[in-house]
Design a protein around this nucleic acid. Sequence first.
DNA 1: CTGTATCCCAGCGGATACTG
DNA 2: CAGTATCCGCTGGGATACAG
Lengths: 175, 175
Amino acid sequence: MTSETIGANAADSRVLTRVGDFVPRDAWATAGVRCSIEKALDVVGTRSAMVLMREAFSGSRRFDQLVLRTGLSEPVAAKRLKQLVADGLFVQQAYRDSGTRTRLEYVLTERGRALFPVMAALMQWGDELGDGRGAMQLFHADCGEPVTSVLRCAAGHEVTLSETCARQDLPDDQG
Amino acid sequence: MTSETIGANAADSRVLTRVGDFVPRDAWATAGVRCSIEKALDVVGTRSAMVLMREAFSGSRRFDQLVLRTGLSEPVAAKRLKQLVADGLFVQQAYRDSGTRTRLEYVLTERGRALFPVMAALMQWGDELGDGRGAMQLFHADCGEPVTSVLRCAAGHEVTLSETCARQDLPDDQG
DNA sequence: CTGTATCCCAGCGGATACTG
DNA sequence: CAGTATCCGCTGGGATACAG
């Protein structure tokens, strides 16, 4: 069975399928809707965007540091940072260090910080590629245990791929 | 403090920093190591790879379905699928439907399936962009509750960004 | 049905030089 | 220090036509 009603919260007219089954139709393309994955990739779909976010999570805030530590060229970093500010992942905040000059630094917004689970999951997946050189492991500061990205439902269950269903919010003109 | 020892598991010589603090140096570039993020992006860093994975998780296995439902052109889909097979995210499996002909279908490997938390996290993040059209919500099949991507430590604690530390495995020649 | 071959264009990203 | 201007090569991706 490819489409069914599972659980009270899902009892509506929208498309609900077990992940791994077929969804009923070419929903995205037919509806002229960009799916969430594509919308996300419009913002962080480039290597430069991702490595800048990575460095931002590592604490870099100043332009020269971001350039140095990402290995990007200045023009690329500047262009991408400008786009990321426009997309609301960074804000530019004035700050002044010991000297007198006031400078701007790139500070993650809530939307930018919300990308952390994506980065963590991607990092975890990337660690398992290749020889393990350059691996980065995350830890819980409070207890020291390693941190992984998992799927969890609102009832607190840890959910695997095969236990997951998907519901698409399609436009009104869907039959 | 930017570098410290937190918890027993982290008590070694590698770089350990609170996420959000600075790591001590330009570790990636200096060491000539591609970080896990970049390694992951080498494989799934393109829009075509991501939408093909999305459709694979939705159950598409045949070439024509993957082409139709991703909206990619055949040449792009073929090239990317070939690369994803080479990278071990898909295997091509023979199957035969009611007719007599044997065909190949693209089946996710364990490595491919391991990308699901990334896709789920990215989908979740992308849902919060824009007008909500095309949003896709995941549910736990067993209880119907919505599923989200979270960070969890081995001790079972749910971990936020500010509670997370990172340890980098740098090459031996690091001082 | 499952691709391949060819051609084309747009965008990413690097190098270099320059500005406030 | 924090970018901008310009130029250029590479790759991603689409269109079309063709092949097993």
